[in-house]
Every structure is written in structure tokens, then in C-alpha cells.
Design a protein around this nucleic acid. Structure first.
Length: 1047
RNA sequence: GCCCGGGUGGCGGAAUUGGUAGACGCAGCAGACUCAAAAUCUGCCGUUCGCAAGGAUGUGCUGGUUCGAUUCCAGUCCCGGGCACCA
């Protein structure tokens, strides 16, 4: 790093101006420029050094810019990165942008600005805001998911997924070419038993299939595959909506009805990896709650699939009619032991059997119900337990064990996507089934004797079964296995492992995402040749939806039909892999990839961001290896983490990287919530019918803004306008002309969000408020104690709630170092908390106090300057007061306690207590009047990760011959070493408790034994007082902890 | 509904393994310095009884285990976040 001169002449230093004051503005500007000019944070792929990889979940560059919630995790990771650098590691600490996404596209729809343009602008803002805070990112490694140089490789990895299948024998991804070869030579035949038509085939059969048939079979195995799936369709908007855009069954924008619609979609076969995703959790350092969430998401359960014969209606005729179809109802259950307690079946409304089995009598009812369900989201269908809905199909299932006829219902609480989309309902053992049976008057069979009260279901597994045929007398938990064995024996079902997790939908009917490198020809998906990558987005002027719910790309014929080279495969004779189709004909896929495509592998690209030959060179990914520390919000707890864990496993299986878990350790930062402020507006309105017309003449009295206390009073008064007016008039005489207030005058109270930036705590800055808008200029206020007190509430931080706080403003006012330390000081990084700017002063004061360990007060008369000061006079009246004196034991103790504290707290991500450790050290050294280099220099290195600018500045002044603590790498300063000998104590002040309550304190030598301690304790006056002459039952002495006298 | 968190002074929080509850900071109060302000410094600061000494009480609530519980166990209430949530 470049140094200014070493002569002590630092007149070009920004400190030359304005005295000795801690001038954070100039210091921070100076060092940020210097770091940039000297490429201080450039990270080399130097394989000889020990590495450490610290990663932040990269942000979506929204138009609103960074708010104070964003940097919380970034500051934590920055501190840790700088700390690891000082410890001698080659630290990779990159940053980039998750720059594809819906908001930019929506903004484009609204304003006509191209998403690429707005995204570029937003990224520039974000970067400037990030740089303001003094992060040590290596920007030369920046990635942006919407950059064609990046998404080229996202598309490339998609092709790997498309061209791979999950081998159930090896439990890993293999090239699909191997599967094709197997089909061509051996077919797909069962290991034992007879082949099932439609599932099994011989090699000859395979080779005789049409290419469409072959592709269909392969599609069932590809890791990236296409099938029909449901989307939220909004007819009025002619578009597919995200879950986010649907509120209460209607579109958020415009309130149009939304219903489910089946469309061809791409999916990732993440379910194939369910077991490995579960096993992988054992090898990573995530919090238990995080692992629990992922396990619950995957939702592995073991149970049985059981087939039931169906009888349609009561008449014999209908039974035989159905028998011809050989329809069976297959249910999945984790409790086959309850098979005799099944009183009804519930089938998902979208189950394929529903139309088939519904009787003529019930047809109308069922159709009505199906119509209702179409408008309901999965979420609503699950959460609404109070409202029980369902409809009888008229058909019955036959219990294979006792021949009972079981009515088949459809109900929204059963989802098609889980299990077989049908359940056997056991009302005595399941509360939801119980409630359903009660609601529809379905008789309940009790199979658990006294465990069932008739009042509610009992989900026990400990009961002894009754009314249960061959299971009678067995404990339920033992009966599970017996029942499954019997079911398998009878050939009516089988043991089954089930997962709650579903394959991940991978298409979006949108413009602003990665195009699929896929061309459709005669209904077959053909992968593009790698040489065609990146397949770039066409530039468009309109972003509206395409026909039939397709994405905007469907409107661009030139792009869709452009000639592209298709992938060839020498391994296969399957036409889709051959080049004989030529480069023209067919159309490109019109949907784009979802947001998580780019974020599933970005951690790899940072390692080798400019590589044009590969997504990441193998020896580079071998060096940087796993992310050692990943910091990000819980909102990505499940989705993003599972997807990127899956991608990593696929890349590993295909031998493209050397490890199958991306993130070694994960720390979840808590959400910073907004602390909203409210003002209350009172208006009285009088509506009178105008004579001879239908219209109303509305007389509006002037509005007045109420401080919180008055709001509460007036809220109590309700609609009594006279009382309200009188109340106001007692405080502001004649504000209302009472004679105009009538019975029909209505009282309107509005609660309005007010910008938190013009509120000090809860006190509104009335003048600033008046300046905000013309309509407020002459507003009247009803104050309390001459103050306007606002209401407050904790909410999500968002622009619409006027509760966002911009870090730029705080950095401008207090400096980046103060801002960094304050964010950390707020509390544990993983805990959510509302933002409150009050308190930042305290941290700023600490830094100023820290500064004064190095500088004498400007105003102090010269006589008070310590004689030993060899102060570098930097400008008139300013003195650098650091000395070369030998430290005292007391000073060394402070230093080494601090080294221990900061190192421990940093290692365990307890940055808030770390900051308080610095405060304590500063307070103690101030009290000791310590200005000694041998104490302050190591202290500066400790501080450097937390407050790098001030540390750099003071370090340069204290010893400019040494390497910078913030320069990075092994050349930098090294972390101070804790030495026990300086902090060793020979005695301790023990708390002495009587019956567990602390009553006094005794200072005792640390090596004292039980007898010595007992003698000392018994000799103590206060102890004697509490003993009241009695002998103690016991004296508990825990070395180095406490003493307890039990009476 | 289900899953995961969290409830400690006026406020943010500390107490790392069951051992002095309230570190550190904010706010508040009193004082010093100053013509004044800012900045800085000193003292007090959970509640309650008391002139004080000293007591009582106190970590959402109810119990339990323990010499001793903010910490462990059972139940319960409230708040926050997530959901494709369940067979």
C-alpha cells in the first residue's frame, strides 16, 4: 500500500484542517480512495496460501436503494473477513447482484423503461452505498445474474441438468446418454416380476418407439424436465401471476379473479435428491432451527400406499360399469394401523378420478364445489380449519379387510400434489377428519377404546386396537408393521416412503430472466449447442404477456424462430441429439428461468469470474472450496438454500466440482424491522342533502392533528361530534363553531404514517412536518406538554410505511465507522429487532473518546501537555500524545483482557458484546491516562475489522513504517496475541449467598481449599447475623464461582 | 392450521458450561466547566418499604427439578417470521 511520506510531515493529511477533532469525513474519504487506488482488497487465486471464503447473500438491487436492514449481515461478514485476513488467511469476500426479477419488469411495464437500464442504475446506487460503508469487497469479482457473461453459465448448467438423470442405483446424477444407451441395449425391465405396460419395455421396443415416445420417456428421468403444472391465471390481465401478486383469490393489481390453469412448465427434479439433502444436513454447520426447517420442508415420512376398490353409487349396474375401468382409489397413509377406523375417503378436488367416480346425482354439487376450489390458494385451503368444506361424490370405496362401504368425498384440505392426492380419513384419530365427520354427520368408528372420548380425536400410537379385525388387541405402534405386511401380502398396497417436497417449478412467464437454451420442434425439446450460449434476451419495447398466458418472449417472432445450432451427441441415436434436424424450424422456449436459477451457483462464479472457458476452473474451485461462512436472512432459509444445495450436488455428481455441500457454516442475520410513527388527523364532516337534487353538500370543518393522548380521548368519544368539538375547544378556544355542529356531523379519525426521519423518538418535529407538503403548511396541532407525540408500531421496513432509514444519511452524519459499530452494537446479529437511530450518538462518542487516547484536546493550555509527549505537531495547538513509555501491569491487563474478549466475541459472531468490549477498554485506558504505543498499537489492530478507517488513520500516525491493518493478506499487520500472564489474578471477590441469596462478598485466594473457605465464611459478621447462632447445614464452595451457605 | 424463533429496567441489550441479574450504550435526573451553547467530565438511575443501615420483590405467566434457575423440564399466554404444510 502506498504511504504518504514517513517524515512526519503530513500536511496533506486531511487532519491538517480543523484541529484535533475526530474528522471522520476526511479520514474515511482518504482511506476509501487509498484502498481503491492501491487495489487493497484485490484477491488472488494464490493456491499457496490458506484460504477462507466469506459470502453474503447477494442483494436484489431494488429501486428503493439500500436501507439500514441490508448492511447488518454485510458488516458482520466484513468484520469477519478483515479479522481472518489479520489472522493470515487469503480471504475471498465478494459481492454481486441478483439482478433478474419481477420488480424490474413490473417497473418496465409501468414506465416503459427497459429492465436492463433500471437494473444498471439501481446497481450503481447500491454499489455507491456499499462503498460508503467501507467494505473490503473485491469488486473485480463482482457478478450480476442478468449479465449475459454470467447467465451463459446458468444456461450451461441448465443443459447439464437437462442432459442428466438420477440413477437410483448409484443415488447420483449420471449423463442421460448412459440411460439412452441402456435403453437401446437392455431396455427398461423390472428386476423381478412381470413388466408393467407403459412402464417397462425391452430394447427392441425402445428402438421401435417414435422419437416423440422416446423423448417422453426420457423426460420422465431428466433432472430438468417439462410437464404440465398449475399456475395462477388471471384472465382479465391475460397473464400468469406470482403467489405474491394474488391476494385473497384476486389479483393484487386491479382485483381481478385468479384461477388455476394448467400450462407446460419446466421443473427441477429436486425430489430425487431429497435423501441426500437430508443426509447433507449432518455435515454442515447450520443452526438447529435452520436444519429443522429444511427437514420439515423435505418432509420425509414412511407409510403405505393402499388401493381401494371403488363402487360407484348404490346400484349393481354402476359397479360393474366401473369395474370395466378397473379404477382403484390409491391413498397414502402413515398410519395403516388405523385401516379399520376409516369412515370416509377424502380426495383432492383436482384428482383425476373425481369426474369418473362422481354419480349423476352428485354431479351438480361436485361441479359447484370444484368451481369454488379453483379460486382458492393452497395456503388458504390448508390454513382455514374453522370453515369446513367438502362434497360427497356419491361413490364408495370398499375396505379390503371388512368389505365396508366407505363414502368418497372431495375436500379442499387435501392437496393433489402430496402423496397420492387422496387420504383415508380416520375421525377418531385425526382432529381434522373428526371435525369433517362431525360437520357432515358421518358416523365415527372408535378403534381405540377409552382413548377416544367422543369429544375430540386422539392421535395416539399407544392405544390398544379394537373394532379392528385381525389387528384387535395390538398396540397401534406395533400394528403399523403388521398391517403393512398384510397389505403387501394381499397385493393391495405397498410400503412407501413419501416426501412433502415437490419438484421445483422452474419456468416463469416473464421477460426479465434467463432464456432457456431450448428449442421446441414437433413437441420435442431440443437443447441448444453450447456454442450458442449465451442465448441472450432480445431487446424489446413492450413487456406485455404473450398469447395464452405465455411470457412476453412469445410476442417476438424473430427471436423465437432464429436459426440456432442444436446440440449433437455422438453417444446416441436419438434424433434430438443429432444434428440432422438442421438449424431452422421450431421455436425457442418462451418462458424464462426463475430468480433462484442464477443464485443457485453464484458462489462458484466469484472464484473464477472472468473465465470464458468454464463456469469455474476445477483447480480454482478446489482451492476456494466450500463457502466457509455464509451470512444471510432467514427469508431464504428454505428455497434458495435447498436449490443451491441441490445444484451443488448435481455438479459434484457430474464431477465438475469436488464437494457436494456449498456452505460449510451458515449464520442467519435477523431482520431489521421498521419502527413506524403515526399521526392522527381529526376531521368533522357534515353531509346535507341539497334541495331538489340527489347530491350531497358536504361541509368540511378544518382538520386538526392530534397528539397521541388527545387521539385516545377522542377515539373514546366515538361519533359524538358535539363532545368532540367541545373537547377540542377546551384546549383551543373557539376552534369549532359549536352552533354549526349538528347530530348528523360525522367524526373522522385518520391514522397516518409519518416519515420517521422527522420524528425524534416519538416527538414529531412539527416545523419539519409543515415543510413536507403544501397541505400541512397551515395545519393545526393539538399538543400535549407543548409536544406532538406520535403513535408507534413495529412493521416491516418499507417505503410505503415511511419508516425506512437510509444508511447514507447516517454515514454522512456520523461516519461509516460509527455506522458499522452501531449496527453491530444493536444486538446479536441473528436476532430481529426494530431499527432505532437513537443511540448511535453513544457509539460516535465512543470513537471520539478512543481518538482522544491519541490526541490531546486542542483547547488544553500548553502547560498541560505531558512532558514526555513526542507529539507530532500536526497543526497549531494539536498534539499527538502517544508515548514510548513502558506500560504498567494495569495497562497490560486492560490490553490483554481486551484481546481475549474481542477475539472470542468475533469468533462466536457476538459483535455487539465485542463493541462493548472496545468501549470498556477505552473507558479504562482513559481512566489510566494511558497513551502508550505498546498498548494502543495492538488495540488498533483489534479495532481495524470493526472500524477500519479510524484504525488505518491512527495506525499510520502511530507507526507509519509498519504494514497497514486493513491492507489485507499476509503482508498486513498481524493479530495481537493474548498472554495469560498479564491478566492472572491471585484472588477473587466471591459472592457469599445464604440459601441462594447473595448477602455479602468475600475476597479469597484462588487456591484456597474448602476448609480455609469455611473458616473465612464462618468468621464473617454478616454470615453470622443470618445464622442467628445456628450451625449451617452445608457450605457450598464452587471454585472461581461462588459460595452458598445453606441454613 | 403447521413449522421456526423471541418475551430480562423507560429503551437496545449483557450474563459464553445451572453460580453476584441488569455489563455496555441510549434516554432521564443532579452537578462541574462555559458569558452562553456545543463538546467534555463527575455522580445517581429495576420496582418497592426505609432518614439511613438494611429489607422485600424482580428475567411473559403457572408449576417442577436443584443448595442455587434468565439458563433445565412440563404446561400456558403474547409477539415476530415462514409455509408448497400434510395424510
Amino acid at each position: 500500500m502506498s504511504k504518504e511520506d514517513n517524515s512526519g510531515n503530513v500536511s496533506n493529511s486531511p487532519l491538517g484542517v480543523g484541529g484535533m477533532e475526530y474528522n471522520f469525513r476526511d479520514i474515511e474519504k482518504k482511506w476509501q480512495k487509498q484502498w481503491k487506488d492501491s487495489n487493497a482488497y484485490k484477491v488472488e487465486n494464490d493456491f499457496s496460501k490458506p484460504k477462507y471464503y466469506v459470502l453474503d447473500m447477494f442483494p436484489y438491487p431494488s429501486g428503493a436503494g439500500l436501507h439500514v436492514g441490508h448492511p447488518l449481515g454485510y458488516i458482520a461478514s466484513d468484520i469477519f473477513s478483515r479479522y481472518k485476513r489479520l489472522k493470515g488467511y487469503n480471504v475471498l469476500h465478494p459481492m454481486g447482484f441478483d439482478s433478474f426479477g419481477l420488480p424490474a419488469e413490473q417497473y418496465a411495464l409501468d414506465t416503459g423503461q427497459h429492465p436492463a437500464e433500471t437494473t444498471k442504475k439501481n446497481i450503481a446506487t447500491f454499489k455507491a452505498q456499499l462503498d460508503n460503508i467501507g467494505f473490503c469487497y473485491d469488486w473485480s469479482r463482482e457478478v450480476q445474474t442478468s449479465d449475459p457473461n454470467y447467465y451463459k453459465w446458468t444456461q450451461w448448467i441448465f443443459l447439464q441438468l437437462f442432459n442428466s438423470y438420477f440413477c437410483n442405483t448409484e443415488k447420483k446424477a449420471r449423463p442421460i446418454a448412459e440411460l439412452i444407451k441402456k435403453y437401446e441395449t437392455k431396455g427398461a425391465m423390472p428386476k423381478n416380476g412381470n413388466p408393467i405396460p407403459g412402464k417397462h419395455f425391452t430394447a427392441d421396443e425402445w428402438n421401435g418407439y417414435s422419437k416423440q415416445q422416446q423423448e417422453e420417456i426420457l423426460m420422465n428421468r431428466r433432472l430438468a424436465f417439462s410437464k404440465f403444472g398449475e399456475v395462477n391465471w388471471c384472465e382479465a390481465l391475460g397473464t400468469v401471476l406470482a403467489n405474491d401478486e394474488v391476494v385473497n383469490g384476486v389479483s393484487e393489481r386491479g382485483g381481478h379473479p385468479v384461477e388455476k390453469k394448467k400450462m407446460r412448465q419446466w421443473y427441477l427434479r429436486i425430489t430425487a435428491y431429497a435423501d441426500r439433502l437430508l443426509e447433507g444436513l449432518e455435515t454442515v454447520d447450520f443452526s438447529d432451527s435452520m436444519k429443522e426447517m429444511q427437514r420439515n420442508w423435505i418432509g420425509k415420512s414412511t407409510g403405505a400406499e393402499i388401493s381401494f376398490q371403488i363402487k360407484k353409487g348404490k346400484s349393481e349396474n354402476e359397479v360393474s360399469q366401473l369395474a370395466a375401468h378397473s379404477s382403484q382409489l390409491v391413498v397414502y397413509t402413515t398410519r395403516p394401523d388405523t385401516i379399520f377406523g376409516v369412515d370416509f375417503m377424502v380426495v383432492a378436488p383436482e384428482h383425476e378420478l373425481v369426474t369418473e367416480i362422481t354419480t349423476t346425482d352428485q354431479k351438480e354439487e361436485i361441479e359447484k364445489y370444484l368451481h369454488y376450489v379453483k379460486s382458492r390458494s393452497d395456503r388458504e385451503r390448508q390454513a382455514d380449519v374453522k370453515q369446513i368444506t367438502g362434497c360427497f361424490t356419491g361413490a364408495y370405496a370398499i375396505n379390503p379387510f371388512d368389505g365396508r362401504q366407505i363414502p368418497i368425498w372431495i375436500a379442499e384440505y387435501v392437496l393433489a400434489g402430496y402423496g397420492t392426492g387422496a387420504i383415508m380419513a380416520v375421525p377418531c384419530g385425526d382432529q381434522r377428519d373428526y371435525a369433517f365427520a362431525k360437520h357432515f354427520n358421518i358416523p365415527i368408528t372408535n378403534i381405540i377404546g377409552e382413548h377416544y372420548t367422543g369429544e375430540e380425536a386422539n392421535a395416539t400410537k399407544e392405544a390398544t386396537l379394537s373394532n379392528s379385525g385381525f389387528l384387535n388387541g395390538m398396540l397401534m405402534k406395533d400394528a403399523i408393521d403388521v398391517a403393512v405386511n398384510k397389505i403387501e401380502e394381499l397385493g393391495i398396497g405397498k410400503r412407501k416412503v413419501n416426501y412433502k417436497m415437490r419438484d421445483a417449478g422452474f419456468s416463469r412467464q416473464r421477460y426479465w430472466g434467463e432464456p432457456f437454451p431450448i428449442k421446441w420442434i414437433d413437441g420435442i425439446a431440443h437443447p441448444l449447442d453450447e456454442s450458442e450460449l449465451p442465448l441472450t434476451l432480445p431487446h424489446v419495447d413492450k413487456y406485455g404477456p404473450g398469447p395464452d398466458g405465455q411470457g412476453p418472449l412469445a410476442n417476438i417472432q424473430d427471436w423465437l424462430q432464429q436459426p440456432v445450432k442444436l446440440s449433437k451427441s455422438s453417444e446416441s441415436k436419438v434424433p434430438s441429439f443429432g444434428g440432422d434436424l438442421g438449424e431452422v424450424g421450431g421455436t425457442l422456449e418462451t418462458s424464462t428461468m426463475p430468480g433462484y436459477a442464477g443464485s443457485s451457483w453464484y458462489f462458484l462464479r466469484y472464484m473464477d469470474p472472468q473465465n470464458e472457458q468454464a463456469f469455474c476452473e476445477r483447480k480454482v474451485s478446489d482451492y476456494w472450496n466450500q463457502v466457509d461462512l455464509y451470512i444471510g436472512g432467514t427469508e431464504h432459509a428454505v428455497g434458495h438454500l435447498l436449490y443451491s444445495r441441490m445444484w451443488t450436488k448435481v455438479l459434484y455428481d457430474l464431477n465438475l466440482i469436488g464437494y457436494d455441500e456449498p456452505y460449510k457454516k451458515l449464520v442467519n442475520q435477523g431482520m431489521i424491522q421498521g419502527s413506524s410513527r403515526f399521526i392522527y388527523r381529526l376531521s368533522l364532516k357534515l353531509a346535507e342533502e341539497m334541495k331538489g337534487t340527489d347530491s350531497l353538500d358536504i361541509l368540511v370543518y378544518p382538520s386538526i392533528y392530534l397528539s397521541q393522548k388527545h387521539y385516545k380521548v377522542i377515539e373514546e368519544l366515538g361519533q359524538d361530534a358535539t363532545k368532540v368539538a367541545n373537547y377540542v375547544n377546551t384546549l383551543i378556544p373557539n376552534f369549532y363553531d359549536i352552533s354549526f355542529v349538528k347530530d348528523s356531523t360525522s367524526v373522522h379519525l385518520n391514522v397516518i404514517h409519518v416519515d420517521v426521519n422527522i420524528v425524534d423518538g416519538i416527538e414529531l418535529d412539527v416545523d419539519a412536518f409543515k415543510m413536507q407538503r403544501e397541505e400541512y403548511r397551515y395545519a393545526e396541532f393539538l399538543l400535549e406538554d407543548d409536544k406532538y407525540i406520535c403513535g408507534s408500531e413495529v412493521e416491516k421496513m418499507s417505503k410505503s410505511k415511511f419508516n425506512t432509514v437510509n444508511p447514507d444519511e447516517l454515514v454522512a452524519k456520523y461516519g461509516a465507522d460509527t455506522f458499522r459499530m452501531y449496527e453491530m452494537f444493536l444486538g446479536p446479529v441473528e436476532m430481529s429487532k426494530p431499527w432505532d437511530t437513537k443511540g448511535i450518538e453513544g457509539v460516535h462518542r465512543f470513537l471520539k473518546k478512543f481518538w482522544r487516547l491519541f490526541f490531546r484536546e486542542t483547547k488544553a493550555p500548553p502547560a498541560e501537555v505531558p512532558k514526555h509527549s513526542e507529539g507530532k505537531e500536526r497543526s497549531s495547538g494539536e498534539a499527538f500524545i502517544v508515548t514510548d513509555e513502558e506500560p504498567t501491569p494495569a495497562e497490560l491487563k486492560v490490553l490483554h483482557n481486551t484481546i481475549k474478549k474481542i477475539e472470542q466475541d468475533t469468533e462466536r459472531f457476538s459483535f455487539n458484546t465485542g463493541v462493548s468490549g472496545f468501549m470498556i477498554a477505552t473507558n479504562e485506558l482513559t481512566d489510566l491516562k494511558c497513551h502508550k504505543r505498546k498498548i494502543l498499537e495492538p488495540l488498533l489492530i483489534l479495532l481495524a475489522p470493526y472500524a477500519p478507517h479510524i484504525a488505518e488513520e491512527l495506525y499510520e500516525l502511530i507507526d507509519s513504517s509498519k504494514a497497514s491493518p486493513c491492507g489485507g493478506g499476509l503482508e498486513g499487520a498481524s493479530y495481537p496475541k493474548f498472554e495469560e500472564k498479564y491478566v492472572k489474578e491471585s484472588s477473587k471477590a466471591y459472592p457469599v449467598a445464604i440459601n441462594g441469596k447473595t448477602r455479602t462478598e468475600l475476597t479469597i485466594a484462588l487456591d484456597a481449599n474448602q476448609q480455609q473457605v469455611e473458616a473465612l465464611v464462618m468468621g464473617n459478621e454478616i454470615v453470622q447475623k443470618w445464622l442467628e447462632g445456628k450451625a449451617p447445614k452445608k457450605i457450598i464452595y464452587v471454585k472461581n464461582k461462588m459460595i452458598n451457605v445453606v441454613i
